[in-house]
Design a protein around this nucleic acid. Sequence first.
DNA 1: GCTATAATTTCGATATGCCTAAATTCTATA
DNA 2: TATAGAATTTAGGCATATCGAAATTATAGC
Lengths: 227, 227
Amino acid sequence: MELSPQIEDYLKNIYQLQTRYGRVPTTALAERLAITAASVTGMVRKLAGLGLVDHEPYHGVRLTASGESLALQIVRAHRLWELYLVQALEVPWDQAHVEAEQLEHALSQGLADRLAEVLGHPTADPHGHPIPSRNGDVARRGGVPLDHLPAGEAGVVVQIRDDTPELLRYLGKLGIYPGEHVAVLDVAPFEGPLRVQIGDRTEVLGRRVAGHVMVHSEATLHERQRV
Amino acid sequence: MELSPQIEDYLKNIYQLQTRYGRVPTTALAERLAITAASVTGMVRKLAGLGLVDHEPYHGVRLTASGESLALQIVRAHRLWELYLVQALEVPWDQAHVEAEQLEHALSQGLADRLAEVLGHPTADPHGHPIPSRNGDVARRGGVPLDHLPAGEAGVVVQIRDDTPELLRYLGKLGIYPGEHVAVLDVAPFEGPLRVQIGDRTEVLGRRVAGHVMVHSEATLHERQRV
DNA sequence: GCTATAATTTCGATATGCCTAAATTCTATA
DNA sequence: TATAGAATTTAGGCATATCGAAATTATAGC
Ligand SMILES: [Mn+2]
Ligand SMILES: [Mn+2]
Ligand SMILES: [Mn+2]
Ligand SMILES: [Mn+2]
């Protein structure tokens, strides 16, 4: 099935919204794609006709099995490109996303497999997001926002939202990457900034910034017990 | 100026036809793009409106200065991708063209420069076609079809048409690449096949095949004097 | 020069994707 | 449970890029 770049973007974004929120409302999709809700309704009806989504009028969409499997191929293409750009072409990690946004629509199956091969069949992109396998398996990488960690708790960065280049550049300067250890030393009162230990340095992070950094808390089990 | 992939393809193909034949007739373009002449007329009028081509109704088009400079960027993107795919990703040289046909529309200026850089600012793609520089300089590489060489004459392969994968695969097996030395041992009568020396081997090439291989004859000067 | 044929353009349609404005449906709160 | 406001869809349009069929223009051979 040969899909237009537009349809590919719809599928990819429905996928990303539904894994977080279940059924995807028209307006959520519209906002994400920066088009009007009316346009989304039209396209979504078409996608339903193609059997790629299940559209319950007035109650949002969700991908069908075949829609999801196509969506995963786009996500795979996007993240393979991001990693390839960063690793092989030394593109700064904050620029990878925009470039991949175009390249994802120009990657054949064969070339995707080739990229995966030279990258050693990676499972995560430069921002820590999981790369689906060729047959559509995705690792759930989870994590909680860094600003949800109480003072005194430590963790490992697992993923970082990649849609704000300036923020990524800033985090890069601070040495905050997926895989790095961080510890929250203390949190200023009234939703204030966090003092964070990164390697041997101490940095102060604003709430906004910390919210973009997802970590695996080393105390996750204790947390769960308390709840 | 942000151009649609379609417009990019028009510009690229006008460029390639006009360097060989001057003003490009509507039908020539139509055949090359595999669309109808009526469609070409419409698009060409639009391109003229954008100041990218000069359209003399009933007498074909040619690129304006700005149209040509844009066309050269697409050609550059295409050929950089081809070379990169073959050299860095070890894609077979007969598959590079189709992949590049898509990727050429998804290459930012910055990434093009990066590709050029890691490739060492190359001047030719895997098939021997010149890669325009960032500011649009192109080397003329010329050459004559191998089947135009008289028996006894030798030459160096300069370029090979890249639009027929099977033919490229065949030539690859014979060891015929840009840069290789070939010598025409003899030519069978009545437009017959050529016996050709390649390295230490002798091969028999049909006319069709030989016509796709452009060579720099080592006797070009003598040829010119005779004419 | 005239005319048949080929090349090219014009005309009327179609498909895709998008928009604005108006109508409909849903839902939360009173 | 009625209803105001929000979410969503419907209706009518527009731009792009394509097509087939008909009309026009160019040109080569007489
Ligand atoms: Mn991304
Ligand atoms: Mn990413
Ligand atoms: Mn090519
Ligand atoms: Mn080539």
